[in-house]
Nucleic acid binder design. Structure first.
Lengths: 226, 226
DNA sequence: ATATAAATTTAGATTAATCTAAAAATTTAT
DNA sequence: ATAAATTTTTAGATTAATCTAAATTTATAT
């Protein structure tokens, strides 16, 4: 039996729902729809309805039938803790255990549910208090706060604009391997050489090399403009 | 959905039963009784009967009604893997995250179920291939083999015998804290100064200090005689 | 404004793991 | 060797999480 921050018991399934609601509802500030939760968790809408009623009973979400759900403060704290753990474990896997950024997600999905405050605080210390995970996503602090940096999609940069790659939107293994192949990594300096109106592709420069990327790629790379 | 070494799905509950059977049945070589399994897992005998039927169906144990169960080769491999992970995580917690030996058990109980071969192999490497956990218990190797060293309980030593503390039988927090208090740790040199027939207590020397220990303590400390 | 489509909820079943109480088998003690 | 005690199994229920299919509500389009 495991108990959360508030001294209440919480199941692994409940944690996963709360996390999904957090991420779908822009960190818990807007309503997440029943169907979007079902899609995110690869389950059925009817299962979601059942579960959100239970979460509402326990005080993790506010729910009005047909209106979707929004996290309460209590729910937000749970979600931020799970996300914090997920991202810290990802850093651990890459920094200490030689994993690459396309291999860490599934393992972090398991590790994020381990219950121990001391464990996560010591892990944070071991990793020297990282602020971002290997995909550039910010790590919530102990109280659940996220400091967000100004970043934009590469797609939005104008010709001749320069910036640094600070994150990926799509974290699928396929996309990350594509980036590896073309030596695009967090920290890479990117210059937009030209944009093609026809298909929204662009030519960019990374270090010495020049490559042509599709609109799909440009829409999944976060850039800090300079 | 997680799949084991044999490509079959295995639940967390099944893993816990298999581990208990392994440890009760002296690493799976003798039969574990229904009641002993129930005690170990803090559940009821009727629940155990249900589960061992399922484990038998899946080929992890051999079961004849009223005869208890013994692990199959398949079951033994699963169990040894779980124990290997448990003990490696314990080493990690103590060596890398500043935990003391009385704090690691509950967290390792959670971590032992994380599924990733690469994770556990890399952890093994990070820890420089440890052979024993913080309580002196041997860590099974990748193929599930345990090399056991010759050790005896302090209780069995004669007067004037010398040895080194190599493990604890009781791993409860209470006992481990007792040992900390009297500076008894793995690696401590111990000499039996005298034995008291009346209550089976003994006087031992550790480093510069001399202490009186009860039969209970003597029966829970493993010693390598010298 | 009303019909149609889409989203959501309800009703009723199913599965895994558990429980209690009763029945059956085995072990122990005289 | 048989009665008593203990252990184990069976039978029937319960809970959490899920599902399908049907009903209901909300949104969309003409």
């Amino acid at each position: 039996m495991w108990f959360n921050y508030f001294g209440a018991m919480i199941t692994l399934t409940e944690e996963n729902y709360i996390k999904a609601i957090y991420q779908l509802g822009k960190y818990g500030t807007v309503n997440a729809s029943t169907n979007s939760i079902a899609d995110a968790l690869e389950t059925k809408a009817s299962s979601v309805t059942d579960m959100i009623k239970k979460l509402a009973d326990k005080g993790y979400v506010n729910y009005k039938p047909y209106q979707g759900v929004k996290l309460t403060q209590k729910g937000k704290k749970i979600a931020a803790d799970v996300v914090r753990k997920h991202r810290l474990w990802e850093v651990f896997l890459v920094e200490k255990l030689n994993f690459s950024w396309d291999e860490v997600h599934d393992i972090a999905e398991q590790l994020e549910h381990i219950k121990s405050e001391k464990l996560i605080n010591e892990l944070d210390k071991l990793l020297d208090y990282p602020t971002h995970d290997p995909h550039g996503d910010p790590i919530p602090d102990k109280s659940g706060d996220i400091k967000k940096t100004d970043k934009t999609l590469l797609f939005n940069l104008d010709e001749n604009a320069k910036g640094i790659c600070v994150g990926v939107k799509d974290t699928s293994s396929a996309f990350l391997k594509y980036l590896d192949k073309y030596n695009i990594a967090l920290g890479s300096k990117i210059t937009v050489l030209s944009k093609e109106a026809f298909d929204d592709s662009m030519v960019i420069q990374i270090g010495e090399t020049t490559i042509n990327i599709s609109q799909v790629v440009a829409n999944n790379l976060f850039i800090k403009e300079q």
